[in-house]
Design a protein around this nucleic acid. Structure first.
Lengths: 200, 200
DNA sequence: AACTTTGGTATACAGATGTTTACTGAGATA
DNA sequence: TATCTCAGTAAACATCTGTATACCAAAGTT
């Protein structure tokens, strides 16, 4: 028999998962409390046992996204070899992530304008963390290769901008038609990194 | 006295302008037909004399945006001197545009995920046109400076990605606090252009 | 075994939504 | 001047929305 807490957590997770699923089609900000509740198999009134309102749910969703992305990054970093071909491998891994976690990624790129100000703030914070992790990676790689960068922070921001833009485009295209996106993304990222290197 | 056609066009324009204004606060996809109609001073039922539904209005809005942006680009290009400092001037002009046409720009960056598929398609087409115009500018400038690029199209895409990302951030910040955005954007754009140059 | 806690249900409410219908009055046309 | 056109109104509709209330039954506590 399941304890009461377990059961509560279970429906909480169901709410989150259902919201994520539904938001893929209409966007989270166009989602109604009732819709989500019913899809999760509970009465609208029971929704309030878990979240104050939809914005509250939205913030929980963002936590979910952040967690998943950080996990992905950590794994990817561990698998990444030193030396040549790192950009190719990273880009490949990223696009795979986008395809298999499309709902999460959609939330991240799609609601930058959508929700409340608290929601947007949390979202930008999530992206910022992304940027700063990449910045550290870039610095580490640069010093290992003995090719110092003029400004790793700017480079990281530019790379993230490009990566997210392409990721958003990937969402609109079936995965078997995305090869050109991968090569394009690889070239653009390399371009930025080349431009970021200190000239001697 | 105004002709009937003029009057109709007038309220049509009022609908578009009001929608643009309201969409700045909640995002266009969270806008209701009634809301827009009443704000424009007509009955909800009269809305149908001008647009089939909200999606139809959205497409008209996008036309508006595209027109305004192209106009801006043309003017900016004409004013642009040859030689040094072009990036700085362009970035400055762009940020000014974003601030004084924030509603239009918001639509462009905010609804990439928001509306119907027809809406998204039109939106991406608008951005694509942007990219291709920039590409031609870059090629022209590169040949004038005798500094050929490896791939002007990729460079243009990367620049647009960065520019739009920063533009989206500028929308969240009062204009007197944006100096750091400008310097950052200038550096990142230069970074990309440097990386795009053919090495000899 | 008696009592408390709490996720959940059922129901009701007021308000907003998109859309339809019949009508009106001023501009266009003959 | 008489007729037609049509952007706009008023009202009603079915449906969906968020939220409040009273209640229930099973898990947890004593």
């Amino acid at each position: 028999m399941k304890s009461r807490n377990e059961k509560k957590l279970e429906t909480r997770r169901r709410l989150i998962q259902v919201a994520l699923q539904l938001s893929a089609e209409v966007g989270f900000s166009n989602l109604s409390l009732r819709e989500v509740s019913v899809a999760a198999g509970i009465t609208p009134a029971a929704f309030y046992r878990h979240f104050r309102d939809m914005e509250d749910l939205g913030l929980a969703l963002l936590d979910e996204v952040g967690l998943s992305l950080r996990q992905f990054l950590r794994d990817a970093r561990r698998r990444l070899p030193t030396g040549k071909g790192r950009v190719e491998i990273s880009v490949q891994a990223f696009l795979e992530y986008v395809n298999s976690n499309s709902n999460l990624f959609r939330l991240l790129v799609g609601e930058r304008q959508g929700g409340s100000s608290a929601f947007r703030k949390a979202l930008f914070a999530e992206i910022d963390q992304f940027v700063s992790e990449l910045k550290e990676d870039l610095e580490k790689a640069a010093s290992a290769d003995n090719k110092p960068l003029t400004n790793a922070a700017y480079a990281a921001e530019a790379v993230i901008a490009v990566v997210f833009t392409v990721g958003a485009e990937a969402l609109e295209i079936p995965k078997h038609k995305q090869e050109f996106l991968a090569t394009r993304l690889v070239e653009e990222v390399k371009m930025i990194l080349r431009g970021a290197r200190k000239r001697d």
